[in-house]
């Protein structure tokens, strides 16, 4: 029983990392209606910025993280302005292809600028393993879970209580009607992408000590993020959390009880199951289009 509990905990820890990134992904999907394929790579860029500020320049962590967030948000806004904005009036497929292109550009730019090898990133939350009975918890992972929960709560507050947050919700429900209410679409777009990039940076900083910082670190996690988003419900914030956690659980449980050889395949199986039974995702909205 303890083994089962342990592996569930591990799965949830893994899943909370996916969840944080998926939140950022879903914000973009809900407000802009586009699938941001490059979300994982934006995380990677954020991690590299943190590497520069925290490790290379040896700035204290509470300076390095905000600086990294600012830099990464700037990068994201520039990309939005140059690559995405010209395509909003065109087909969604074109926009998706564009995000795939941005993903490749970001990876190769990172390789050019920082190099192709892996870099060490010190853990911000040192500490020995915590043992509770026969179950153990790694402090870094606990922090990831904590940050994820806090992020979700803050996001929830933001969306429900602030004017801008409610405007974003309105935009996600009906874009043209929101425009008619006087919502400034450009501002909303910038805020959406900015928030998404900021969250991705935080996710990168959390992940870096565990997997090291390298140019392709966004690739495999980017795929899991997209799976989490679809499974949980595209555009749904609680869906992002649910989807991320589920994917993490499935990966860990499958690896433990079936085989570690196919560990990367179990989330895909989950995706298939969800798509066949509830294509809008577990917490997704069914799109009703009036003809």
């Amino acid at each position: 029983m303890n083994l089962f509990l342990q592996i569930c905990i591990q799965g949830l820890m893994l899943g909370s990392m996916y969840a944080i990134l998926t939140l950022g992904y879903n914000i973009i999907y809900s407000t802009m209606g586009m699938a941001h394929y490059a979300q994982g790579d934006i995380m990677m860029v954020g991690a590299f910025f943190a590497l520069d500020f925290f490790v290379t320049m040896d700035l204290p962590i509470y300076v390095a993280i905000p600086l990294s967030v600012i830099c990464n948000v700037l990068v994201m806004l520039v990309i939005e302005r140059l690559a995405y904005r010209p395509l909003y009036s065109r087909s969604r497929t074109l926009l998706l292809l564009c995000t795939i292109g941005v993903s490749t550009v970001l990876r190769n730019a990172a390789q050019l600028i920082w190099g192709t090898q892996s870099f060490n990133f010190p853990t911000i939350f040192p500490g020995d393993i915590i043992h509770i009975g026969e179950v153990y918890l790694v402090p870094q992972n606990l922090w990831i879970l904590g940050v994820g929960v806090v992020m979700m709560l803050l996001l929830n507050l933001f969306m429900k209580k602030t004017k801008v947050g409610r405007a974003m919700q309105a935009v996600s429900m009906n874009r043209s009607a929101a425009a008619l209410m006087g919502v400034n679409m450009q501002t909303i777009t910038m805020i959406t992408y900015g928030m998404s990039a900021g969250m991705a940076t935080l996710a990168g900083v959390m992940l870096a000590p565990i997997v090291k910082v390298y140019s392709t670190m966004g690739v495999s996690i980017g795929a899991k993020v997209m799976i989490s988003a679809v499974v949980g419900g595209m555009g749904s914030m609680p869906g992002a959390i649910l989807g991320g956690l589920l994917v993490g659980l499935v990966e860990a449980l499958g690896g433990m009880y079936i085989s570690t050889t196919f560990k990367e395949a179990y989330p895909v199986v989950l995706l298939l199951v969800v798509l066949l039974n509830r294509p809008q995702g577990i917490l997704g909205r069914k799109k009703v289009v009036k003809v």
Partner: peptide, 14 residues
């Protein structure tokens, strides 16, 4: 086993 590129070894280590 582990797949190339997968950095999560928690299951294997457990």
């Amino acid at each position: 086993n582990f797949t190339t590129g997968d950095k999560d070894f928690s299951t294997q280590v457990l």
